[in-house]
Amino acid sequence: MIRIDKLNVHYGSAHVVRDVSLDIATGESFALVGESGSGKSTVLKALAGQIRDWSGTVDLGDVRLSPGKHPRELIRRVQMVFQDPYGSLHPRRTVDDHLDEPLQIHGLGDRDQRILSMLDAVGLARKFRFRLPHQLSGGQRQRVAIARALMLEPDILLLDEPTSALDVSVQAEILNLLKGLRAERGLTFLLVTHDLPVVSFLCDRLAVLKAGQIQEIAGVEQLRHRNLGSAYGRELVAAAEGVAAEQA
């Protein structure tokens, strides 16, 4: 479903993504992990059409991406959930406005019914429909953002650290929601995160990135058994466990 071959991204003179190649199957949930600055979000942005200066081949389904262009047929198939639900919702528009927007842009009918069933699907009570973002909690906002991304019924969902801005208790709810939606709708996930427990909960495979290069691609079983192949991968796992031990 997602095939990336030798993706390179330059920010000015900085070479932030180097020869990244990935092959993600339909219905798979794939994670890009690495510390900040490893280029993992940049890969996602290139796929989302948010940066222009990249080279390489990217195929999403049977559509080939080219830099600086985001073909319209892709919009219905690839959507994104942003990291910060406080920044990804327009402060003056209600939940209803947010969910209605994609339907308006693409001229889809039956809008009331679609919005109501989407609210149900993401577990947001219908009474929230006409609230403004500041009247919602962080978890509720992220549900709205997920609902908005799903309004066009895409096949691929790009997730940019979808839980890192949320409280721990809410994180679990959102992760469960994402897992359920993926099973229900047969979505393909590409998740960017530095949170390894999230990867083991939500993903099938992962790629470890360091300084823009893939260190290894591993199955989630390897991560669970702390059996990653690359030295850097093991380092990441050890660091994550160190943090967990400190918190406990």
Partner: peptide
């Protein structure tokens, strides 16, 4: 991000300026 989100949904520049930026 909320402007990037509208762009991802396929909103035109005109729509973004008129309906998302101007009201703010």
């Amino acid at each position: 991000d909320f402007i990037a989100a509208v762009r991802m949904l396929g909103g035109s520049h005109w729509r973004i300026v008129a309906r998302h930026i101007l009201p703010l």
